[in-house]
Simulated assay, not measured.
Amino acid sequence: MTDPLGQQRPIDIKAQLQACRSKEDTFKTLVMLSKTQPRLTAEEKTEDNKIKGCESAVWLIIEEKDGLRHFKADSDAKLMRGVLVAILSLVKGKSLADIQQMDLKAELAELNLSSYLTSSRTNGVLAILDKITSH
């Protein structure tokens, strides 16, 4: 199912990833999800928006409207774009206080991504979570 903007709902993304029964299924699902993530413009891919510590180049923009957080993100790697879709599905449209109340690491653990989160990717994901929860 999609929301009015054509984006997949978080529960659907979670269900899709949890339904994966192999590393290949998870990879295909992440690549498919990566195609739903709008790309950032060259002007948005600034050093200020770049996440430090990621294996791939990752940019994250946080915007707040009416107390709710909205995110724009991109990566030079399809797999990481898929991971971004999964992460952002958990937090988009929530307030910073609500996001800070969440156990995002536990939520991510439920998404069946562990085989793709190598130590260097895990560092990048932790840096993304830090930016999401601290700004």
Rank of each mutant, 00 (worst) to 15 (best):
M1S: 14
P4R: 08
L5M: 10
L5R: 14
L5P: 01
G6Q: 06
Q8D: 04
Q8V: 01
P10K: 12
I11Y: 13
I11F: 14
I13G: 11
A15E: 12
Q16D: 13
Q16E: 13
Q16G: 06
L17S: 03
Q18W: 05
R21L: 10
K23M: 07
D25A: 11
T29E: 12
T29D: 02
L30N: 06
L30E: 06
V31S: 06
M32R: 14
K35R: 15
K35S: 08
T36H: 08
Q37G: 05
R39Q: 13
T46V: 06
T46F: 04
E47P: 11
E47M: 03
D48F: 01
N49L: 02
K50C: 09
I51A: 01
I51R: 04
G53S: 05
C54Q: 07
E55A: 13
A57Q: 15
W59M: 06
I62T: 15
I62G: 03
I62V: 13
E64Y: 07
K65D: 09
K65A: 10
G67F: 00
G67S: 04
L68F: 05
L68G: 01
R69T: 03
H70C: 02
H70R: 13
H70Y: 15
K72H: 15
D74A: 07
A77C: 11
K78V: 01
M80G: 03
I87H: 03
L88S: 04
V91L: 03
V91H: 11
K92Y: 04
G93V: 02
I99W: 07
D103M: 06
K105E: 13
E107T: 05
A109Y: 00
L111R: 15
L111E: 03
L111A: 04
L113M: 10
S114M: 08
S115Q: 14
S115M: 05
R121S: 07
N123V: 02
G124E: 07
A127D: 11
I128H: 05
D130R: 15
T133L: 00
T133V: 01
S134V: 01
S134I: 00
H135K: 14
